[in-house]
Each structure stands twice: as C-alpha cells, then as structure tokens.
C-alpha cells in the first residue's frame, strides 16, 4: 500500500459520510420545511392581503387587516394588554411557586420519589382535560368549590361569569399547569449545582434566605432563564385552558391574542385579521426572547 493512499481514502470516505449525513437529515428537514415555512410565509402574506374564509387569498396587498385590528380598541386596550397580563402573571407566579417546590423536592427524605411523581403528574395529563376538571370545580351550580362553600352557608358566585373572577381562575389554572414542567427544570438545575453546595446552603437557620440568594440563586440562574423563556412562550401561546374555561367570554373579557385569533378565523370569518394577530403574537414573542436572552447574557457576564 503506497503511503499517500490512506489519507486519500479517508478523505473520500469523509465525503461519502458527509453525503450520507445530509441524506439522513433530508426527510426530517423536508417535513419541517413544509410544516413550518409554508404556514409562516402564508400567514405573513395573508396578513397583508384580502382573504376570504371561504375562498382563501383573493387579492392584495392591503393594509385593511392591520387597520382593523390596530383601530379596534377591544384589541389594543383589551386583548393585547390582557395577553401580557396573563403571560406575566402566570409565568411569574409559576416561578414563585416552582422555586420552593423544587427546593422541597430536592431534599432527601423517605418517599421523595413518590412526592416528585405526584407533583409532576399534571404535566402528563392533557391540558384540555385538566381544564375541564377545573371548569367543573368552579362551576356555579354544581361545582366542588361552591358545594364546599355551601356547607359553610356561603353562596359562592358563578366564578366564570365575570372577568374579575374568571381571569384570576384562568391564571391559577395556568400556574397549576406550568408548575410541573418548571419544577422539573429547576430540579435538574439544582442537581447540576451539586449536593455539597446545597447541603452547605440548606435553608436551615436564620440566614437561610440569604444563603439561598447568595449561593443557590446565582448558580441556578441559567436554568431559571431557560424556564422563564420557555414558560413565556408556552403560556403566551396557550389555548386549551382559556378555550375550555371561558372561550374568551363574557364579551371577550378573557380573550388573549391566541383565542381571539382563533375566533376571528373560525367563528367570525375574518382570516385576514386572524393572520395579522398571528404576526403580532409572533413578533411579541420574538422581541421578548431576544430581549430577555440578551439581558440574561449580560447578567451572567
């Protein structure tokens, strides 16, 4: 065998393997391209076109869709700020509940495995089904909550009849549903920190809180950032909870961009406006993620 032949052969092998690699990727990439790229392009185009629910894009370009959502006070002063309120509310409360939950579940005790399983369980349950159960619990006539209140002689209200009670309930269900994922993420983060540090910084004693802030929190920061970004994306885009509990009612007072979009498209035959709302929600998330990740980067530096 001549000495030069070996590297040459491995060079062609490398080329061949690179080709095999691309070939292996191709089917997955093809499906992703169709299911992601086409709808995104089509959503953007629709938002600046005349679109009919029954016939699709019929002409354009037009600013009509944007004008009608941006001139609609119900959207600008209702749905949009409410969506932010819902997202920020759910995400911040979730983090606030999940941090202690993760710390509690991190400790060593008998039955820890079972405790973890029970707390994380709701993650596996379909959201619409959880939401149906909560809807029953808060039902005005038959619900568990009002049934219990009645035993104390209190006539509970119809919880989902008004935004002032329905919105907090929605947020509560959102938090309840987000806790498992967040807790498990934070648990993973805590595992990464290592038992000895945690032991040293355990919450016992008077300055437990200080130690938590000084030692654990900074170490947990990267995972916390991930939990915040992912939760924000999930909660912002959340559909089943609101859809099952109130469908955005009464009088759109519990709508978020997502449920409003869905109704515009499939109930009120305004696909153009729905698509414009889709673009809005996408832009909001993009801006948020970019801003937050930059902030997080600066933070760690």
């Amino acid at each position: 065998m001549p000495p030069v032949a070996a590297p040459l052969a491995s060079e062609t092998l490398r080329h061949r393997e690179a080709r095999v690699g691309l070939l292996c990727l191709a089917p997955a990439v093809a499906l992703l391209a169709i299911v992601f790229l086409y709808p995104i392009v089509s959503t953007l185009l629709d938002s600046v076109s005349h679109v009919s629910a029954l016939a699709g894009r019929t002409g354009g370009p037009t600013a009509k869709n944007w004008q009608s959502i941006l001139s609609d006070p119900a959207f600008l002063r209702g749905t949009l700020p409410r969506t932010l309120f819902w997202t920020i509310g759910v995400v911040s409360l979730t983090i606030l509940c999940s941090l202690p939950a993760a710390l509690l579940l991190q400790e060593r005790f008998k039955g820890r495995k079972l405790a973890r399983t029970l707390v994380l369980l709701p993650w596996a349950v379909p959201l619409p089904i959880s939401a149906i159960i909560w809807k029953f619990i808060f039902n005005g006539q038959l619900g568990t909550l009002n049934g219990l209140l009645a035993q104390f002689g209190i006539a509970g209200p119809v919880w989902l009849a008004e935004a002032k009670t329905a919105l907090p309930i929605m947020i509560w269900v959102g938090v309840w549903a987000s806790i498992p994922f967040t807790t498990v993420t934070l648990l993973a983060g805590l595992q990464g920190i290592g038992a000895d540090i945690l032991e040293a910084a355990s919450l016992d004693g008077a300055n437990g809180w200080l130690r938590f802030r000084a030692i654990i929190l900074p170490l947990l920061r990267p995972v916390l950032n991930v939990a915040i970004v992912l939760n924000t994306i999930y909660v912002f885009n959340s559909f089943p909870i609101i859809w099952v509990l109130t469908q955005g009612g009464p009088a759109n007072s519990t709508d978020t961009i997502i449920t409003s979009l869905y109704k515009q498209a499939f109930r009120f035959s305004q696909p153009g406006q729905a698509q414009a709302m889709g673009v809005v929600s996408f832009v909001v998330l993009l801006v948020f993620s970019a801003w937050y990740l930059r902030l997080a980067e600066k933070d760690t530096q």
Binding site: I40, S42, I258, A274
Partner: peptide
C-alpha cells in the same frame, strides 16, 4: 418558538 395555534389558519 412556534406554537401551531399561531399559524393554525395556514396549517
């Protein structure tokens, strides 16, 4: 980043 509900009309 994407949730199917945002592009559900196009999908």
């Amino acid at each position: 980043m994407f949730s199917p509900v945002v592009v559900v009309v196009s999908l």
